[in-house]
Simulated assay, not measured.
Amino acid sequence: MKERLLIADVRMPDGMRVDVSVVEGKIDAIGPDLRAENTVARENGNGALLLPGFVEGHTHLDKTMWGMRWYCNSVGPKLTDRIENERRFRAESGHDAAAASLALARAFLQMGTTRLRSHVDIDTDAGLKHLEGVLKTRDTLRDVLDMQTVAFPQSGMLKREGTVSLLDDALHAGADVLGALDPALIDGDPVASLNATFDLASRHQKPIDIHLHEPAEIGAFTMNLLLDRVEALGMQGRVVISHAFCLGALPPRERDPLLERLAQLNVALLTTAPASVPVPPLAVCIEKGVTLFGGNDGIRDTWNPFGSPDMLERAAQIAMRYDLRRDDAIAMAFDCVSDAAARGCGFADYGLHAGARADLVLVDAETVAHAVAARPVRKLVVANGRVVARNGRLIEDL
């Protein structure tokens, strides 16, 4: 017998009152007055707003201390200070990536996130230990949380001997995406670093998601080198550039040709919308046809005491960073943690339409903008056709 669920009386983002029929984890139909068979489990939405399950496009589940004791941060100001401090802390404290990632992943589900991309440190000291922990979490929640893991060299590709070999091992072990970091400013040789990255990705037929913090002209130089390789190797639609701070610092005459190349090669951008550094211009990216989506980065870790598994909160931060105030503009911020994030990460069968995976969130809000601004309790969260949270509380058997 097919598993069926009917969610009655909900409002689509356009205001239309509908029912949603779910069969075997997929949306079977959306429309008014759908007929329920005797075998249907039924939920009454009571006119709540229906949203698609949220997408976290960039986080670091392995690093988090969510739900643990407060970490007192006294680290130095440089990127390398934070990298070395974190490596030392994790080794000395015995930080457990399996337990940490499971706690935060469950919190994401509770708040309505059903698709998630997590970068995971691949380190010459720790080896694949952190990845193994996150892969356990991915396996534990595989029926409800669609999780991608990125094998991420937190110290760069070339700085520590053996990193490329470990990344090769990580992709063999089940990592979905190959990460990279600042080829010029961390590795000191952007050509060799990018060559190693694209060679490894090509051999494994894996997509790439690179952290690019490099500023202004340095970042633009690296980005052009990267785009040259995307074009030469036919990797259109398989590369994400995370952060891309340089695009927020360049004048339009230098920035716009880069955005046009990004659009032509279908290379997506990820922003966490930080307040302290330049960010890629959202409106111009949309105008040029570039996919720009959102994520938290680290949440409550040695780098950063902030962040939350609530993607409505991240959408609100994106809206504030880009000074979005109109309802239609705030809906663009929500797109960054929903449709655009699904496109950027390559999550298939996403959205509110028949045939999509049944990832649904109900909230008491009048519009999408209202939901982003008010961040109401999640009345119901459905992941892959299964009710996983109700009235802000996770179902305990997950």
Rank of each mutant, 00 (worst) to 15 (best):
K2E: 03
L5R: 01
V23S: 01
A29Q: 09
I30D: 12
P32D: 14
N44E: 15
L50K: 09
L51S: 05
P52R: 03
G53R: 01
E56I: 01
G57Q: 12
H58K: 12
K63L: 00
W66E: 08
R69K: 13
Y71F: 03
V75R: 07
V75E: 13
V75G: 02
V75M: 02
P77C: 01
L79G: 07
I83C: 03
R87M: 08
G94C: 00
A97F: 02
A100M: 09
R117K: 08
I122C: 12
I122P: 02
D123W: 08
L131P: 04
G133S: 06
T140Y: 13
L141N: 04
D143L: 04
Q148L: 13
K159D: 05
L171V: 15
L171R: 15
L178T: 04
D182K: 10
A192M: 05
L194H: 11
N195I: 14
A196T: 12
T197A: 10
L200R: 01
L212M: 15
G219P: 12
M223H: 10
M223Q: 14
L225R: 03
V230N: 03
G234I: 05
M235N: 03
G237N: 03
V239S: 10
H243I: 14
F245E: 15
D256H: 08
L258T: 14
L265P: 10
A268N: 13
T271E: 15
V277S: 14
V279A: 12
P280D: 13
D297T: 10
I299W: 05
W303V: 06
F306N: 10
G307D: 07
L312D: 07
L312E: 06
Q317P: 03
A319I: 06
M320Q: 15
R321D: 15
D328L: 00
I330E: 12
M332C: 13
F334M: 11
D335T: 10
A340K: 12
C345A: 11
A348V: 02
Y350A: 02
D359Q: 00
L360A: 02
A365C: 07
A365R: 15
A369V: 12
A383K: 03
A389S: 09
L398V: 09
